[in-house]
Protein backbone atom coordinates (compact mmCIF):
# COMPACT_ATOMS: atom_id res chain seq x y z
CA UNK A 1 0.00 0.00 0.00
CA UNK A 2 1.44 3.37 -0.83
CA UNK A 3 2.10 5.94 1.82
CA UNK A 4 -0.73 8.37 1.04
CA UNK A 5 -3.35 5.63 1.05
CA UNK A 6 -1.94 4.25 4.28
CA UNK A 7 -2.23 7.67 5.90
CA UNK A 8 -5.76 8.08 4.65
CA UNK A 9 -6.96 4.77 6.07
CA UNK A 10 -5.17 5.05 9.40
CA UNK A 11 -6.44 8.55 10.07
CA UNK A 12 -10.01 7.89 8.95
CA UNK A 13 -10.28 4.63 10.86
CA UNK A 14 -9.04 6.19 14.10
CA UNK A 15 -11.48 9.06 13.63
CA UNK A 16 -14.27 6.53 12.99
CA UNK A 17 -13.39 4.72 16.23
CA UNK A 18 -13.40 8.07 18.06
CA UNK A 19 -16.87 8.77 16.63
CA UNK A 20 -18.06 5.37 17.84
CA UNK A 21 -16.67 6.07 21.31
CA UNK A 22 -18.70 9.28 21.29
CA UNK A 23 -21.84 7.27 20.45
CA UNK A 24 -21.16 4.58 23.05
CA UNK A 25 -24.11 4.43 25.46
CA UNK A 26 -23.34 5.64 28.97
CA UNK A 27 -25.63 5.72 31.99
CA UNK A 28 -27.41 9.03 32.43
CA UNK A 29 -25.30 10.27 35.33
CA UNK A 30 -22.07 9.71 33.38
CA UNK A 31 -23.31 11.51 30.28
CA UNK A 32 -21.91 14.99 31.14
CA UNK A 33 -18.49 13.46 31.78
CA UNK A 34 -18.04 12.01 28.32
CA UNK A 35 -14.71 13.14 26.84
CA UNK A 36 -14.68 14.69 23.39
CA UNK A 37 -13.04 11.72 21.70
CA UNK A 38 -13.39 12.89 18.12
CA UNK A 39 -11.96 16.33 18.80
CA UNK A 40 -9.05 14.79 20.72
CA UNK A 41 -8.23 12.45 17.83
CA UNK A 42 -8.38 15.31 15.32
CA UNK A 43 -6.15 17.43 17.56
CA UNK A 44 -3.58 14.64 17.69
CA UNK A 45 -3.45 14.17 13.92
CA UNK A 46 -3.35 17.92 13.25
CA UNK A 47 -0.42 18.21 15.59
CA UNK A 48 1.64 15.26 14.46
CA UNK A 49 0.75 14.88 10.77
CA UNK A 50 -0.39 18.34 9.65
CA UNK A 51 0.26 17.44 6.01
CA UNK A 52 -1.99 14.39 6.04
CA UNK A 53 -5.10 15.86 7.63
CA UNK A 54 -6.82 19.11 6.87
CA UNK A 55 -9.95 21.11 7.33
CA UNK A 56 -11.78 18.90 4.84
CA UNK A 57 -11.50 15.77 7.03
CA UNK A 58 -12.33 17.80 10.15
CA UNK A 59 -15.39 19.25 8.45
CA UNK A 60 -16.63 15.83 7.25
CA UNK A 61 -16.33 14.26 10.67
CA UNK A 62 -17.82 17.33 12.29
CA UNK A 63 -20.92 16.99 10.12
CA UNK A 64 -21.13 13.26 10.92
CA UNK A 65 -20.97 14.13 14.62
CA UNK A 66 -23.71 16.72 14.13
CA UNK A 67 -25.98 14.15 12.54
CA UNK A 68 -25.20 11.58 15.22
CA UNK A 69 -25.85 14.02 18.07
CA UNK A 70 -28.86 15.71 16.55
CA UNK A 71 -27.32 19.18 16.78
CA UNK A 72 -27.58 21.82 14.06
CA UNK A 73 -25.78 20.75 10.88
CA UNK A 74 -22.42 22.50 10.93
CA UNK A 75 -22.28 23.21 14.64
CA UNK A 76 -19.68 20.59 15.59
CA UNK A 77 -18.09 20.99 12.16
CA UNK A 78 -17.47 24.67 12.89
CA UNK A 79 -16.04 24.02 16.37
CA UNK A 80 -13.82 21.18 15.24
CA UNK A 81 -12.52 23.11 12.22
CA UNK A 82 -11.57 26.09 14.39
CA UNK A 83 -9.69 23.79 16.78
CA UNK A 84 -8.03 22.00 13.83
CA UNK A 85 -6.96 25.38 12.50
CA UNK A 86 -5.38 26.39 15.83
CA UNK A 87 -3.40 23.15 16.00
CA UNK A 88 -2.46 23.06 12.30
CA UNK A 89 -1.18 26.61 12.50
CA UNK A 90 0.88 26.08 15.67
CA UNK A 91 1.79 22.41 15.35
CA UNK A 92 5.54 23.02 15.38
CA UNK A 93 5.34 24.97 18.61
CA UNK A 94 2.82 22.77 20.45
CA UNK A 95 4.65 19.56 19.56
CA UNK A 96 7.63 20.71 21.64
CA UNK A 97 5.63 21.47 24.78
CA UNK A 98 5.64 19.04 27.71
CA UNK A 99 2.60 16.78 27.77
CA UNK A 100 0.89 18.53 30.71
CA UNK A 101 1.16 21.88 28.98
CA UNK A 102 -0.26 20.32 25.83
CA UNK A 103 -3.17 19.14 27.95
CA UNK A 104 -3.85 22.71 29.05
CA UNK A 105 -3.81 23.95 25.47
CA UNK A 106 -6.21 21.14 24.51
CA UNK A 107 -8.53 22.25 27.31
CA UNK A 108 -8.42 25.89 26.25
CA UNK A 109 -9.16 24.92 22.65
CA UNK A 110 -12.12 22.80 23.80
CA UNK A 111 -13.37 25.63 26.02
CA UNK A 112 -13.31 27.97 23.01
CA UNK A 113 -15.45 25.42 21.16
CA UNK A 114 -17.88 25.07 24.06
CA UNK A 115 -18.23 28.81 24.52
CA UNK A 116 -18.98 29.06 20.81
CA UNK A 117 -21.62 26.33 21.29
CA UNK A 118 -23.06 28.22 24.25
CA UNK A 119 -23.52 31.15 21.93
CA UNK A 120 -25.23 28.96 19.31
CA UNK A 121 -27.45 27.42 22.02
CA UNK A 122 -28.31 30.95 23.13
CA UNK A 123 -29.40 31.90 19.63
CA UNK A 124 -31.45 28.71 19.20
CA UNK A 125 -32.92 29.13 22.72
CA UNK A 126 -31.60 25.96 24.29
CA UNK A 127 -29.36 27.07 27.14
CA UNK A 128 -27.86 24.43 29.48
CA UNK A 129 -28.89 24.66 33.13
CA UNK A 130 -25.71 23.70 34.88
CA UNK A 131 -22.65 25.48 33.51
CA UNK A 132 -20.24 23.44 35.63
CA UNK A 133 -21.48 20.22 34.11
CA UNK A 134 -21.56 21.87 30.71
CA UNK A 135 -17.83 22.58 30.77
CA UNK A 136 -16.99 19.20 32.29
CA UNK A 137 -16.06 17.46 28.98
CA UNK A 138 -13.22 19.94 28.43
CA UNK A 139 -11.75 19.24 31.85
CA UNK A 140 -12.11 15.45 31.47
CA UNK A 141 -10.51 15.68 28.02
CA UNK A 142 -7.56 17.57 29.49
CA UNK A 143 -7.08 14.88 32.14
CA UNK A 144 -7.26 12.17 29.48
CA UNK A 145 -4.93 13.90 27.03
CA UNK A 146 -1.64 12.21 28.14
CA UNK A 147 -3.28 8.81 27.73
CA UNK A 148 -4.86 9.65 24.37
CA UNK A 149 -1.51 11.02 23.22
CA UNK A 150 0.31 7.81 24.21
CA UNK A 151 -2.25 5.55 22.50
CA UNK A 152 -2.31 7.62 19.32
CA UNK A 153 1.48 7.75 19.21
CA UNK A 154 1.53 3.96 19.44
CA UNK A 155 -0.96 3.70 16.59
CA UNK A 156 1.08 6.09 14.51
CA UNK A 157 4.27 4.21 15.33
CA UNK A 158 2.76 0.89 14.32
CA UNK A 159 0.89 1.83 11.16
CA UNK A 160 2.79 4.85 9.86
CA UNK A 161 6.41 4.11 10.82
CA UNK A 162 7.95 6.37 8.17
CA UNK A 163 6.85 9.45 10.05
CA UNK A 164 8.23 8.67 13.47
Amino acid sequence: MNSALRHFWTINLTLMVALMLTLFPLPNWAEPFRPEWLTLAIIYWCMSLPKAIGLRTSFTFGVLLDIAMGTLLGQHALGICIIAYIFLKNHQRIRLYPIVQQGFIVMIALLIKQILFLWIYGITKRAPENLWLYFMPSIISMLLWPWVYAVMRDIQGRFLPAHR
Binding site: F59, L73, G74, L78, T124
Partner: peptide, 29 residues
Protein backbone atom coordinates in the same frame (compact mmCIF):
# COMPACT_ATOMS: atom_id res chain seq x y z
CA UNK B 1 -5.08 27.59 5.49
CA UNK B 2 -6.59 30.76 6.95
CA UNK B 3 -8.49 31.32 3.75
CA UNK B 4 -9.80 27.77 3.86
CA UNK B 5 -10.86 28.22 7.50
CA UNK B 6 -12.84 31.31 6.54
CA UNK B 7 -14.56 29.38 3.73
CA UNK B 8 -15.36 26.50 6.10
CA UNK B 9 -16.70 28.91 8.73
CA UNK B 10 -18.98 30.60 6.20
CA UNK B 11 -20.19 27.18 5.00
CA UNK B 12 -20.89 26.03 8.57
CA UNK B 13 -22.76 29.17 9.54
CA UNK B 14 -24.85 28.99 6.36
CA UNK B 15 -25.62 25.32 7.03
CA UNK B 16 -26.63 26.07 10.61
CA UNK B 17 -28.87 28.95 9.59
CA UNK B 18 -30.61 26.86 6.92
CA UNK B 19 -30.94 23.92 9.29
CA UNK B 20 -32.40 26.11 12.01
CA UNK B 21 -34.89 27.94 9.83
CA UNK B 22 -35.91 25.41 7.19
CA UNK B 23 -36.52 21.72 6.77
CA UNK B 24 -34.65 21.37 3.47
CA UNK B 25 -31.58 19.69 4.94
CA UNK B 26 -33.57 16.97 6.69
CA UNK B 27 -33.39 14.61 3.72
CA UNK B 28 -29.57 14.74 3.69
CA UNK B 29 -29.59 14.29 7.44
Amino acid sequence: LTLRLIIVMITCITLMTIDHRQQTLNSIR
